[in-house]
Simulated assay, not measured.
Amino acid sequence: MPPDIAVRGLEVTARTQCSHWHSERDIIAIKHKCCGEYYACISCHEALADHPNQVWPKGEQGIAKGVLCGNCHHELTIVEYLGSGNRCTKCAAEFNAGCRLHYDLYFEV
């Protein structure tokens, strides 16, 4: 992980997997709107943060670098991530397509 980017969570690996999500494709971390911190998943945020989660409003999703690829550590805007076809736009690593089931926990949809 680059020294200037920390990913919080439970048992976080160098590829941003955690104790909750750790398949080969569970390699993104999401910056939370509420605190500006990357967490491996919403469950890690709930376990460690001292505040409730906030979702990214649609109006900020094209600007905010809100998703971190755990493979190459490229930061994607939320719009870039949502339109990526579940692959990193820099290194083409595959992301878990099932994450779309949880978008509403992170992003205004």
Results as ranks from 00 to 15, higher is better:
3 P>Q: 10
5 I>H: 05
5 I>G: 10
6 A>E: 15
6 A>Y: 08
6 A>M: 12
7 V>P: 01
7 V>Y: 04
7 V>E: 10
8 R>Y: 07
9 G>S: 06
10 L>A: 09
10 L>R: 06
10 L>Q: 07
11 E>D: 12
13 T>K: 08
16 T>L: 11
16 T>K: 08
16 T>Q: 02
17 Q>F: 08
18 C>Q: 04
18 C>N: 12
20 H>T: 10
21 W>F: 12
22 H>F: 00
22 H>V: 04
22 H>C: 06
23 S>R: 02
24 E>Y: 06
25 R>E: 12
25 R>I: 06
25 R>Q: 15
27 I>N: 07
27 I>D: 04
28 I>C: 07
29 A>E: 11
30 I>T: 07
31 K>M: 12
31 K>W: 05
32 H>Q: 12
34 C>M: 00
34 C>H: 13
34 C>N: 09
35 C>K: 09
36 G>W: 00
37 E>W: 00
37 E>F: 08
38 Y>L: 09
38 Y>S: 05
39 Y>M: 14
40 A>D: 05
40 A>Y: 05
42 I>R: 14
42 I>V: 13
43 S>V: 10
46 E>M: 14
47 A>D: 15
47 A>H: 03
48 L>H: 14
48 L>R: 12
51 H>L: 04
51 H>K: 14
53 N>I: 09
54 Q>W: 05
54 Q>G: 14
54 Q>I: 10
55 V>E: 06
55 V>Y: 06
56 W>N: 10
57 P>H: 08
57 P>G: 04
57 P>M: 02
58 K>Y: 00
59 G>L: 10
59 G>F: 00
60 E>W: 00
60 E>Y: 08
60 E>D: 15
61 Q>R: 09
62 G>Y: 01
63 I>E: 11
64 A>F: 06
64 A>E: 14
65 K>G: 12
66 G>D: 06
67 V>N: 01
67 V>Q: 03
68 L>C: 05
68 L>V: 10
70 G>D: 13
70 G>M: 13
70 G>H: 02
72 C>Q: 01
72 C>P: 04
72 C>E: 04
72 C>H: 04
73 H>E: 09
73 H>N: 15
74 H>D: 10
75 E>M: 09
76 L>C: 11
78 I>Y: 02
79 V>C: 14
80 E>P: 02
82 L>E: 15
82 L>F: 10
84 S>K: 05
84 S>P: 04
88 C>H: 00
90 K>A: 14
90 K>R: 15
93 A>E: 03
94 E>F: 03
94 E>R: 03
96 N>E: 07
96 N>Y: 06
96 N>H: 07
96 N>L: 09
97 A>W: 07
97 A>H: 08
98 G>L: 08
99 C>N: 11
101 L>P: 15
101 L>D: 15
102 H>E: 14
102 H>W: 13
103 Y>H: 07
103 Y>F: 11
103 Y>C: 11
104 D>S: 03
104 D>N: 12
104 D>I: 07
105 L>T: 06
106 Y>C: 07
107 F>W: 14
108 E>F: 07
108 E>A: 03
109 V>G: 15
